[in-house]
Write a protein that binds this DNA or RNA. Structure first.
Length: 929
RNA sequence: GGGCCUGUAGCUCAGCUGGUUAGAGCACACGCUUGAUAAGCGUGGGGUCACUAGUUCGAAUCUAGUCAGGCCCA
């Protein structure tokens, strides 16, 4: 028996069943590098229409995490699929290199040494640190089989890039969109720097909660009585407003108390003093402070308090009654302590009432010497002292601990404060920046579409952009201060000079080259005419750095152009990079630097919760690559709906691995059946092919069209589902199963076998192309194992062409009907198997009684029915109007020793004893190899 | 607290503009195969479409609310 096996055309291939991705991936990637595949691809696509995905630069700090992997893999899908579709799609990766996190890391690494270093030396240490992480991250990105210009990425710390940043700033300056102002900003007293919104994180915090009495000035009591007749009754008694705050240290900076104009307030008798709070809260507050308020003596709208005067509870100065509509009843007393130098709302109120933006603190949060009682104390440590001072004056009515969410510094995780400081701003409403940005948003394609709403709301409501930071590692704002009068000067001539110096020496020059090199000829102070200046020490917000990438990269990089066709980042970048890039683009060129913006969600764990170290549910890309391979990660990215959060966990990965194996095995069978097939000579013309093979081609052509359309829509889950369906159902369970007998036992060079090989060849070749963007290593491996002349790598090839001629809806429809009969047969076979009448399908013969139309269909495919059902014999009966009925019997006759079918008779001729007629013929066929 | 978004079988996804017993693949169970074999084939079980209340002759599909989750703000 065993010898008959040797006469069969059993599949053979070097394309292994086991992928061993952990070793084959690095090998393949090394081979690509050796052959300069990326360079070859650029050359091959020269002159084609371009598709430019502009990379958003990851921050050059730390190892890559799963979010980076998701992002870069999606970008790679876009780049590779556009390239496969025939576009010239270069990819220039970049890194964001400046900024606080690196500065803090380097600071920590240097320790006390830092004190002896110059700023320029410190910056060089930061540069070295960033360089190190660029290398580390680049290594991992390359390991993910991502194509790109890895040897010359763009870095925001490159000299030319730094120059481009100040030039972009110069454009804003030239258009008078930059101003210096005083504003409270989030300030970290530990890092001694202003923080962008993005640099602030909200964390639980326990603050003191205090109720503080602000006595009303004597003359205002009469004024109140004049406005509210009922108040006349107590105008000779002490009257106070009771405020509530969780930051007692801001009391020394209090300049006002705010009331909501439309809320009802009430005056209560609180043991001698008349106290004013929101009426709705009166009873609860009375209980809380331990002084039952009783019935209101008078009630009135908050607006009557406008411009009445209170006295500061600690100092001999006034605190103005003001109205503001952000006052709520959710917490406190309905009367809001207002310190314009220490709060965003407070600031706006202060501006409206012409109050001083008062924040008497130094950079590390110590009260200045001018502050009575608390000079030199640090804000949070001052809290108890403030409470004590209030208590000793009888102004502290109640205090307790209060747990709430409070802003913390994203790096050092210390609580931050609001502090009024001098900062540089880009004005949102000068030169129509905001309006033009909103228009540019409408001209951009947002994927998914809701991205438009999201960024629109942000741009419409955002305050002026604070672009200055008081740190060292970044691009200096080349502003100078007049030494005579202190006026800050920033002109386009200054930025241009800086750009020239930065190009030659890097931006470190600001800290070590003579100031004269930066001063344009004839610079004079616009305020006093002075000609002596000193440098400011502000650097630019890093969002301005990365937001300028289109200015620094697109006009200069090979094959690039402005604007880019696509930006692709996580949905957090609506407030980050998309946002800053849009503002810079509109500022410099009046247009968005992108035509399309695609966003993806975040990676969460299998339960849908965010990944965090504390929850212990973090999955690292390095782990997955080590355990399974980058192809697994890539396949995972393709199957999930990236538009929302994507889940990743053990089971998800296990399922991905299963899918990968299945796909690999099916592909392997196809190649393995082609070991003796040369497309140049053995290809069968469509008209000569068996119907099953044409059906396979029609099915594949339809799938291919669906898949390429999905790539065009960046709809990778459809690519996955369609290819998975094709592979598991159409190919594995149907086509390969049905053709198995033919491929193995028919004459090697028979038309029937060559017909099947033709279909398998075209499908394998097409599948390699179609799946190459998702599984670049596996498909390249497949490619190299396919017969025929072909490009050195599948990645130099394009999506399959010419499949349209195989499309055949009528054929597909016929086979849907045949498939339905096949399902019925399978059902009947299974029943007989359970009854132990038959074992394998070949031990069965089937009689199908089919109604007229179906009978005709079956009769037309009579010859193929045994293969289609996988049984030894099929008899069909016209059932007329009757229903479809399938009868299964044990096959009669003898089992052919070669093809295992049961046949009426086997040969007894010498050399072919025990074989069926078909096998005898197959063996007689001359074989030439 | 606000803005944007999400919630269909254990997992990943389909279910178009509301209309037959909600589908696919994988996983699971059982059987077959041992010439895709650390493979392959078949059959089967499994979903109150997050919940509640509406609109409608009819809702997974529309509206409102609740709950859970994500991103961004406060």
């Amino acid at each position: 028996m065993a010898e008959w096996k040797d006469t069969c055309n059993l599949p053979r291939t070097a394309f292994s069943m086991k992928a061993n991705l952990q070793t084959t991936e690095p090998e393949t990637i090394a081979r690509w590098e050796a052959m300069d595949l990326y360079g070859q691809l650029r050359a091959a696509r020269q002159g084609r229409p371009t598709f430019l995905l502009h990379d958003g630069p990851p921050y050059a700090n730390g190892d890559i995490h799963i979010g980076h992997a998701l992002n870069k893999i999606l970008k790679d899908f876009v780049v590779k699929s556009r390239s496969m579709a025939g576009f010239d799609a270069p990819y220039l990766p970049g890194w964001d290199c400046h900024g606080l996190p690196i500065e803090l890391k380097v600071d920590r690494e240097l320790g006390p040494k830092k004190r002896e270093m110059s700023v320029a030396d410190f910056r060089r240490a930061c540069r070295a640190y960033a360089t190190k992480y660029v290398d580390i991250q680049r290594r991992d990105f390359k390991r993910l089989a991502i194509f790109g210009e890895w040897d010359e990425p763009y870095l925001t710390m490159r000299y030319e890039y730094q120059a481009a940043i100040v030039r972009a700033l110069g454009t804003f300056v030239a258009r008078d969109m930059v101003y210096k102002g005083k504003k409270p900003v989030h300030w970290c007293i530990h890092c001694r720097t202003a923080l962008a919104e993005a640099e602030v994180e909200y964390e639980p915090h326990t603050s003191p909660s205090v109720y503080v009495e602000f006595p009303m000035a004597d003359e205002s009591r009469a004024a109140l009585a004049a406005r509210v007749p009922a108040a006349a009754a107590f105008q000779d008694r002490p009257v106070s407003a009771l405020i509530w705050t969780t930051t007692p240290w801001t009391i020394p900076s209090n300049l006002a108390v705010a009331f909501h104009p439309d809320l009802t307030y009430a005056a209560y008798d609180a043991g001698g003093t008349v106290v004013i709070v929101a009426e709705e809260l009166g009873e609860a507050i009375g209980a809380r402070v331990g002084r039952p308020f009783g019935a209101p003596l008078a009630t009135f709208d908050g607006r009557v308090m406008d411009r009445l005067v209170f006295r500061h509870p600690l100092y001999a100065r006034d605190s103005l009654g003001v109205v503001a509509d952000y006052v709520t009843l959710e917490q406190g007393t309905g009367v809001v302590h207002t310190a314009p130098g220490h709060g965003a709302d407070d600031y706006l109120t202060g501006v409206r009432y012409g109050l001083d933006i008062y924040g008497p603190l130094d950079a590390s949060g110590h009260f200045l010497d001018t502050v009575e009682l608390f000079a030199g104390l640090r804000v949070f440590e001052a809290n108890p002292q403030v409470e004590a001072a209030l208590a000793s004056r009888g102004r502290l009515w109640h205090r307790e601990d209060y747990d709430h969410s409070y802003p913390h510094c994203w790096r050092c995780h210390n609580p931050v404060i609001f502090l009024a400081t001098a900062q540089w701003f880009i004005a949102m409403d000068r030169n129509d920046l905001r309006a033009r940005a909103l228009e540019a948003i409408d001209r951009t394609r947002w994927i998914p579409a809701w991205g438009r709403e999201r960024i629109h709301g942000m741009i419409a409501n955002r305050p002026d952009w604070c672009i200055s930071r008081q740190r060292s590692w970044g691009v200096p704002i080349p502003a100078v201060d007049c030494t005579a009068c202190g006026t800050a000067v920033l002109t386009a001539a200054l930025t241009e000079r800086a750009a020239q110096v930065f190009t030659e020496y890097s931006a470190d020059a600001w800290y070590e080259r003579p100031i004269e090199e930066f001063l344009p000829d004839g610079l004079a102070c616009p305020s006093c005419g002075g000609t002596s200046f000193e440098r400011e020490a502000n650097i630019l917000d890093v969002w301005f750095d990365s937001g300028s990438s289109h200015e620094a990269v697109l006009p200069f990089a090979k094959g690039h152009h402005w604007p880019a066709d696509m930006y692709l980042e996580g949905s957090d970048q609506h407030r980050g990079w998309f946002h800053s890039s849009l503002l810079v683009g509109v500022g410099t060129r009046g247009e968005a630097p992108f035509k399309q913006v695609l966003t993806h969600g975040f990676v969460v764990d299998e339960h849908g919760r965010k990944m965090s170290k504390s929850l212990g549910n973090v999955v690292s890309p390095q782990e997955v690559m080590k355990a399974s391979g980058a192809e697994i990660l890539r396949l995972w990215v393709s199957m999930v709906d990236y538009r929302e959060e994507v889940r990743l966990g053990k089971e998800v990965l296990a399922r991905v691995v299963d899918s990968y194996r299945k796909m690999r095995n099916v592909i392997r069978v196809l190649v393995a059946n082609l070991y003796d097939f040369d497309p140049a000579t053995d290809m069968v013309a469509p008209a000569d092919m068996l119907e099953v093979d044409r059906w396979a081609m029609a099915t594949f052509a339809a799938a291919s069209a669906r898949i390429t359309a999905a790539y065009d829509d960046y709809d990778y889950p459809v690519v996955f589902q369609a290819s998975n369906q094709l592979v598991t159902v159409d190919l594995s369970a149907r086509y390969v199963d049905i053709t198995k007998d033919r491929m193995y036992t028919f004459g090697r060079a028979s038309l029937a076998r060559r017909s099947g090989q033709t279909a398998m060849y075209l499908i394998a070749d097409g599948l390699a192309r179609l799946m190459a963007p998702i599984l670049p290593v596996t498909m390249d491996d497949l490619w190299r194992n396919l017969p025929g002349e072909r490009e050195a790598s599948v990645h130099l090839a394009e999506f399959p062409a010419g499949l349209a001629r195989w499309l055949d809806p009528a054929l597909l429809e016929r086979w849907v009907a045949l498939g339905a009969v096949r399902d019925q047969v399978n059902l009947a076979l299974e029943q007989k198997r359970q009854e132990k009448v038959i074992a394998g399908s070949l031990s069965a013969r089937v009689t199908v009684a089919a109604p007229g139309e179906t009978f005709a269909l079956l009769a037309g495919a009579r010859e193929e029915l045994p293969a289609l059902f996988g049984v030894s014999a099929v008899e069909i009966v016209d059932a007329g109007d009757g229903a479809l009925d399938v009868r299964v019997d044990k096959a009669e006759g003898l089992k052919c020793g070669r093809c295992w079918r049961y046949v009426p008779a086997v040969s007894d001729a010498p050399g072919v004893e025990g074989l069926c007629e078909r096998c005898v013929d197959a063996l007689a066929e001359p074989v030439s190899l």
